[in-house]
């Protein structure tokens, strides 16, 4: 973080946005920049555009991974592997990574494709992904620990994800499928988190639709972010009127549908 005389500024590497480019995910990059400005801070965002490009982990405060195609993820993994452990060091230092959608499989131990093949992920999250025979799309609402408001989005699930025992989910599903098939209560788990690494199935774009979640992330993932205001700050709540109304309208819509469980989907 560059602490200038007036404005805090964080460095964000937007990872391969032309490759991990699905589902309006660029809206999360827009939201990070906009929300930071709302709090009197700023985001210096740079792209890592190509697989062969050097990734400046030392410069970055946060790596942003948007949703991408399952088919592209092995190539993205190789691009990260070529940095010879730099990502491991980055994660070990507790620096921030935010990842959405199917790209979560990149950080899994392994992913089983529908054709029977298996590819090894980066292993930063202790979980296994299995490609679904058919995509599944629905609304997704979950609650993360320490966040007093629900996070509202949609999910396009290409893989089901099983978290290993001890692997913390990001939150609990209030409506939707979350990580999907699994035994017992696994259906209620949404996403995964390991120190500075946060992955969610939620699309939307989730950071644009849920500025309270964006703030929650910034406070936890960015150095010095804890100094940002609390979510119940009155002035901030006023600015979130549109997003609050959106969450309310969609909650009403979801209530009419009922709550799906993994066994039903």
């Amino acid at each position: 973080m560059n602490n200038g005389p007036e404005k805090r500024c964080w460095n964000v590497l937007w990872m391969l946005p032309d490759i991990l480019c699905l589902h309006g995910g660029r809206g999360d990059a827009m939201a990070l920049a906009r929300q930071a400005e709302t709090f009197g801070a700023c985001i210096d965002m740079r792209r890592v555009s190509r697989l062969s490009e050097h990734i400046d982990f030392l410069w970055a405060d946060l790596l942003l991974f948007g949703p991408g195609e399952l088919a592209a993820l092995p190539a993205v993994r190789d691009a990260l592997w070529k940095e010879q452990g730099a990502l491991d060091e980055y994660l070990a230092a507790g620096k921030g990574v935010f990842c959405t959608g199917t790209t979560g499989a990149l950080f899994a131990k392994e992913t089983h494709r529908a054709d029977g093949s298996v590819w090894e992920g980066l292993g930063a999250l202790d979980m296994v992904c299995r490609e679904r025979d058919m995509p599944y799309g629905d609304d997704l609402v979950f609650r993360a620990p320490g966040l007093d408001r629900a996070v509202c989005g949609v999910q396009i699930q290409m893989v089901d994800t099983e978290l290993a025992e001890g692997q913390a989910p990001l939150g609990d599903v209030l409506y939707g499928r979350g990580n999907g098939a699994g035994s017992g209560g696994a259906a209620a788990a949404e996403g995964a988190v390991r120190t500075g690494l946060v992955w969610t199935n939620a699309l939307g774009p989730v950071l644009a639709k849920n500025p309270w979640f964006t703030l929650w992330l910034m406070k936890r993932l960015l150095p010095g972010g804890e100094a940002l205001p609390e979510t119940d700050d009155d002035d901030v709540s006023v600015q979130w009127g549109l997003e609050t109304e959106s969450a309310r309208a969609i909650w009403l819509f979801n209530e009419k549908k009922g709550k799906p469980h993994a066994s039903e989907t």
Binding site: D18, C21, M30, L51, A72
Partner: peptide
């Protein structure tokens, strides 16, 4: 914030 798409052959941008 403009984005393009991955190459369908090698998956690079």
């Amino acid at each position: 914030f403009a984005v393009t798409m991955p190459c369908p052959v090698c998956h690079d941008a």
